[in-house]
Simulated assay, not measured.
Amino acid sequence: MSAPAMIVGLAQEVPMIEWLDDVWSRAHAVQIVEGGEDRGPLAGREIMAELRDAGSVDTARVLTTTGRFIGDICRCHGGPTVVLRDVAGEVLASAGLHGHGSVSWERSRFRNDLVVADPRALHLFLAGLGVPDQLTSFLAPLADLLNLQEGRPQFRPTGREGKRYLIERGVPSVLHPVLVAATGQQCGELSDTHVDDVRRRLTAATPSATGRAVILLSWLGRLPIPAEAFWGEGVLVRQLLADLALPDIAAAAAETRTGDVATGVVNLVMHSGDDGTLATAIGPTLRQLFPPAPAPKTTR
């Protein structure tokens, strides 16, 4: 905790760096609370995560103080907010999180946002703590990496052409007879009876809950974004995943380190939330797919 904050700054930023070093050296706990600068006093806000052990506190310090200042501030109110508290529970400092990897320490005082060095590590860390909406920032990079941007048609068609899409998406052949009769859009509107039929067929073909989770996450992660993934077949797949226990889904995600499965988890979490279990399960996959950028070379 006594190590200086690792920030690449200019001469005029030295006071802010020294201030950060001081408040972090006295921090006993780190809280992540709801809302940004427009939510008023910190007291009374929902605490979404709290860190007290030295290792976690130091990880939070590194992730939120390593980077570069931009000499300006984001005009949005940001959120959630990082709060540092001393041993007596008094607030030492706070910082609003602004979008992808931007941290605003005491914005009204310093007016100098920090773009963190490893934004994906920061969002994964927060997601692993159960802070909502942190995995969302991975959706666009995953869509680019896996070429999931939708084209035409937006939704899978029926019949023989539709079957080709099902094969490409890794949908088990046992489900083809019932699915080819409906478009992708109609799959998002199936009755409970039809969903039960799909569920029974899949369970009979793949009795293992973890095995079904792998199939479903991979299927969900191959759907074009946004229409099919969010409102078409994606609805059906999420209904099927809802029957599985969280440990089985987490095990499937941790053991099957593919971009498809990681994308499926992000899609699922966006619609049903996560206490950090699924974020932790796909963390290694996302770090492998999106490694941190190399540090810039320094000159003497």
Rank of each mutant, 00 (worst) to 15 (best):
V82I: 15
H100A: 10
T65Y: 01
A293E: 13
T206M: 06
P153S: 10
V62E: 05
P291F: 08
L278V: 05
T65C: 06
V87Q: 15
L126N: 01
G283A: 15
V198T: 02
E161I: 13
N147Q: 15
A252D: 00
A3E: 14
E150L: 08
D260K: 02
G159R: 01
Q154C: 12
L124I: 08
A281M: 03
G40K: 11
D113I: 09
A293C: 04
H77R: 09
N112R: 10
A209P: 07
L216M: 13
Q149F: 12
D196G: 15
P284K: 08
V103I: 12
D196C: 07
A295G: 10
E106L: 11
A140P: 08
D197C: 03
S218R: 09
A127Y: 04
S94W: 08
F110S: 03
P41N: 13
R201W: 06
V198A: 06
G188K: 03
P224C: 08
S2L: 13
P153N: 09
G159N: 04
S94I: 00
L268F: 09
A229S: 10
T280Q: 12
W231C: 02
V266A: 05
G221D: 01
R61C: 01
R52H: 14
Q31V: 06
S208D: 15
A245W: 04
M16S: 06
L84N: 01
W219H: 14
A209G: 02
T277M: 06
S173E: 15
